[in-house]
Design a protein around this nucleic acid. Structure first.
Lengths: 133, 133
DNA sequence: TTTATTACCTATTGACATAGTAGGTAAAAG
DNA sequence: CTTTTACCTACTATGTCAATAGGTAATAAA
């Protein structure tokens, strides 16, 4: 399941995209519009800033801004950042896939196919595809 | 993420399909072949029996058998049974989707599209498709 | 220089799900 | 009547999720 972190992150990115101007957008406003606890959103935007998907500026007149145009973000990169992985099974998510049954596993091809389906779906969707503006 | 219950259930179904004969297949044998704790598998086969995907017979010579041919099982029905739902987000999984933002939610179409993708993928795959025999 | 506003930081928590384990009872065949 | 099997109820350690709490640092305007 996609967690609230991933889903909220998309909504935050959308909110910033749709309310873009020359000014920075304070988190307070995003939280109010999206009806999400500002405290919880702090965790999420922190990750977005660290990954350089958005930029944050402190102080009066501060807030957040996109680093690129909405066309240049994929939903996949946002989700993968927040979820850690998009893989549907542990053996495909972990870096070192040391599953001893790997060679003979009959179900592995199924999971690989599903994994690719998910990846292609989300990396094929841009932020601008689900954006009003 | 697909849990071990779902993944093990598929392997159990596959194991029974591939070792089918006139006899019933004891769980002990399945557990040994699949390298999964028999105790844990008990929980899983219980659900499979309750849902009438397999049939179990107690006593000496007992064990488990499929109720249909492998062509007549979809991976989707096995997974959905074990996972409870295949929906990637809570608002599509719960019976009563009373999310107040439903009407104006910009991300809902994305999740609905993803939901359909998952559903079609797993219900389009038959047990026989990933079966050796 | 003070005040208001904003981001940013560390720690904590309750609830719940996952992935099992433990120790039995019932059923059926030889 | 013993062995083999399914079936049943309860328990538990661990981890993740979804937040909350209470601060500090940075910046602009008064």
């Amino acid at each position: 399941m996609i967690t609230t972190k991933g889903r909220y992150a998309i909504r935050v990115m959308l909110d910033i995209a749709e309310n873009e101007s020359d000014k920075f957008i304070p988190l307070k406003d995003i939280a109010a519009r999206q009806n999400i606890s500002k405290k919880y959103l702090e965790i999420i935007v922190k990750d977005l800033v660290n990954a350089k998907l958005i930029v944050g500026v402190s102080g009066k007149g501060g807030g957040y801004k996109l680093c690129r145009t909405p066309e240049d973000y994929t939903i996949g990169e946002i989700l993968e950042l927040m979820e850690g992985t998009l893989s549907p099974v542990a053996c495909l998510a972990e870096e070192e896939n040391d599953c001893p049954r790997k060679a003979e596993c009959e179900t592995l091809p199924l999971w690989e196919e599903f994994d690719k389906l998910i990846h292609d779906f989300f990396y094929g969707k841009k932020l601008s595809d689900i954006c009003k503006k």
